[in-house]
Structure formats: C-alpha cells, structure tokens
Design a protein around this nucleic acid. Structure first.
Lengths: 218, 218
DNA sequence: CCCTCAATCTGAACAGTGTCAAGTTACGCA
DNA sequence: TGCGTAACTTGACACTGTTCAGATTGAGGG
C-alpha cells in the first residue's frame, strides 16, 4: 500500500454558497442507494456487499449503518424504489393500448421485460430475507405495483371483487413465474440478444394461450 | 480450550467385517448432504453455511472440498436430489387421478405444496448462482421434473409438440410464480396452518380460473 | 465572534465465512 | 511388514456485516 486507503472523495475546501458543499450532507443516502443499484446491475443480487456499496460511495464501511441501520435497511430502500419503477413500467405499458386485454398482455410483457433487464434489482425485490420484510413502506410499494394489474383486470373481467382478485393473482403468478424461470435459465440463456428475443416470443405464446381472446370467461 | 476440538465422531476401533467400518468411508458425502438438507429445512436457503454443514457432519471445514470441490458442488448435489423428489411428487400426484385435467390440477397443487413444505430446498433448487449451473446432471434432473408436466399436458391438449411445449411452459410458470410469491408472503403469511390452507384454497381458484374445464381450447 | 451540541463519519476490532496449501492420519494392498 | 494413496486436519488468508469509542463537521445560540 503506497497510500493508506485514499478515500478519493472530492473534498471541496472552498465554500459553495448553496448546498452541495463539503461533507456528505443528506446526499450519502442517495449515493449509497445509487451505488447499491449499480452493484446489483453489475453483479446481481448475490454480488451485493455493504462494504462495496460504502466503498463506491467513498465512505467507511460503518457509515451506512447511521442512515439505514444495517444492510437490510439499505436494500429495503432499493427494493421500494424498484417496486415504484415496476409500477411505472406496468402503468406505462397499459397506457399505450386501448383494448383491456391488450393492456393486460402489454403489462405481462412489461413485467418480464423489467425482470430480464434489471435481474439483480428484481431478484432483490423478492428476497424477503435480505430486506426488512415488515417495513410498511415496502409492503405498500409492493401492493401498489400489484394494483396496476388489478386495475386492468377489473376492467377486463368485471365480476365480483373476489373474482377480480383471483384473476389478478393468476396473472401475477404467471408472469412472475415465467420471469423467475427465465432468470434461472430454464428457457435457455437470456444473455444474448437472440436468446432474449426468443424468450419474449415464448412469453407471447404463453400469454396468448393462458389469456385467450374470448374476453369474458366467467 | 480444555479439549482441542472434540470431533465427537464415533470412532469404531474394532473392525467390522463388511463396509460401514471406521473412518468416514464413502459416508461423508451422504452425511454432508443430509446435514445440508437439515440446515435448509431449519434456516432456509439463506441460512446455509458450508462450515455449519461440516460441523454437523463432525468434520473440519475443509473436508467437504475433497468430495464436492466447493460449497456450490455440495449444494448442486442437494438440488439434484431436490429435483428428483419434486419429480416423484408430481408423478405421484398425477397417478391418483383418472381425468387428464384433474391430473394437471393435482400436479399444480403438488408443486406448490412441495415448495411450501420444503421452502429452503425449493429456493436453493432455483438459486442458480449458488449451484454449479452447468453441471449436466443438474440440468438433467431439472428437465426430468419439467417432463412430468409435459407428459400430462400432452395427454390433455394434444396438438403439435410446439403447442404442448407452450402449454407446459404456461403451466410451470403459473405454479412456480404462485409458489414463489407465496413464499415471499405476497399472499399472506404461510407460517400458520390456517394461512397455509388459505393459500392452497386460493391456488385452487387460480388454477380453475386459468385452466377452465373446457378441455381443448386450441 | 465563539462556543456548544448534535449529527455524521472514521478506525479498529470481533466473530464468522469460503477456500487453499501443507501436513497428518488411516486404510487397503502387496 | 511396509508403502502408496485417499481422507481428513491444521492454520492461514482475504473477505464479510456489525459494533463502539472517538474524531470531525456544520449549524445555531449566546
């Protein structure tokens, strides 16, 4: 070691009038979250390390505990934002279609696309043991994403609330299971562009098979 | 330290004519696999530790590497057996029914039941990054389990092989997604007997909804 | 201006992990 | 009896997450 550790964090000694000045201020949270998301994107859910996140944010390994308590706390924050992003993607996909069934199909494709394009984040969102599972904000974010499905389902099948709930659970299970199996390479490798396209084509067949065009089917 | 480590392993010094005698012989593999399965059952997939498995088998932490290379190797062996057990459960469930559709429903219930009753093992089976993902025996065991679905599907829908493959992927996705979501508490707690029954009832509704009684639906 | 105070972050430590190289033990066989 | 080899241990290394005492910082009040 030529130098002890070399924090490498830019330390603006001259004052800047507005915020953004020295120390980490309230920005360390954001920096840690961003670092965590980068790690998840690069190395997947199993590759996450609290120390590495701290390293990327330019702080000591003990710093995160002050803001998030522990690693689970930080990951919970990441998961909450992940659910928000997922809900956005589902809403956005549905908004592009007119027909209710096409909205649902678009949501199914968007769900799997989200999982395949952000595998680390997606896996972490559903790794309850690595999160603060009873954080109310986490449950809320998760349910908000699920509600995007229920909205379209209600529009599509009508029926009693119980039927809608069953249909929503069915839809969610299908796309979630497909995404999980695809991520574990059960449908072939997902790492090539060709493989990705093939898997999405397969998903299309599956969704059309399970949700046939005959709209209302009691 | 009063005693160095106290291996606690019964060391039969008198010879037994046949195998089963002193040392660990070929039994350490089995002991390690059994220990690993016990850990998975007690503490889930995240609770597994190679050192703890070695501890339970009464050997040093480095011993497993001689038989399995590394932790992934040991877990791969566990996963392979898990897939075999899953295939057995699926075959057994189908064998109890006459009608093809009832066979499929029974398999779906059996799949989720397997996941909920052995969560640690199930999660590990689908944690590719913790296994030797390219072990041919693992892929073979996984495909053998999937084939149990395909057999019944072919009996049910007939059609081209491509249609059968789509239908099998659809069925597998549905039950796998439901199981995964249930294990992450998305359908309520699974830890009580009441919660378990409620979830299985919900599964029944979902499967009847997605696989309606009208047999052939192109 | 200075002084206190709380928030923020560091440094060092601890227990625990997987893996490796080298040494030791026990077995089977000649 | 001796010997080679497989099975296992020992000790070490580089990591990990978390804790705790203390240093540093920025802000607010006198």
């Amino acid at each position: 070691m030529t130098k002890p550790i070399a924090p490498a964090r830019a330390k603006p000694s001259h004052k800047v009038p507005k915020p953004e000045a020295g120390y980490h201020h309230g920005e360390l949270q954001e920096a840690l979250i961003a670092a965590s998301e980068a790690i998840l994107a690069e190395h997947g859910a199993e590759g996450f390390t609290l120390r590495e996140a701290a390293r990327r944010a330019g702080v000591s390994p003990a710093a995160p505990s002050h803001h998030f308590g522990n690693a689970q706390g930080l990951l919970t924050e990441v998961a909450i934002r992940g659910y928000a992003a997922l809900a956005d993607a589902l809403r956005e996909a549905a908004s592009r279609k007119q027909d209710a069934r096409e909205k649902l199909l678009a949501q199914g494709l968007a769900y799997v696309e989200f999982a395949l394009k952000h595998p680390g984040r997606f896996q972490m969102m559903f790794a309850n043991k690595r999160l603060v599972a009873d954080d109310p904000r986490l449950g809320q974010a998760s349910r908000a994403a699920g509600r995007e499905f229920e909205i379209i389902i209600a529009e599509l099948v009508g029926g009693t609330p119980r039927q809608a709930k069953t249909a929503a659970a069915a839809a969610w299970s299908t796309v979630h299971g497909f995404a999980k199996l695809a991520l574990e390479d059960k449908f072939g490798s997902v790492n090539s562009e060709a493989g990705y396209r093939e898997i999405m084509a397969r998903l299309n067949h599956v969704l059309n098979y399970l949700w046939p065009a005959s709209s209302a089917r009691r």
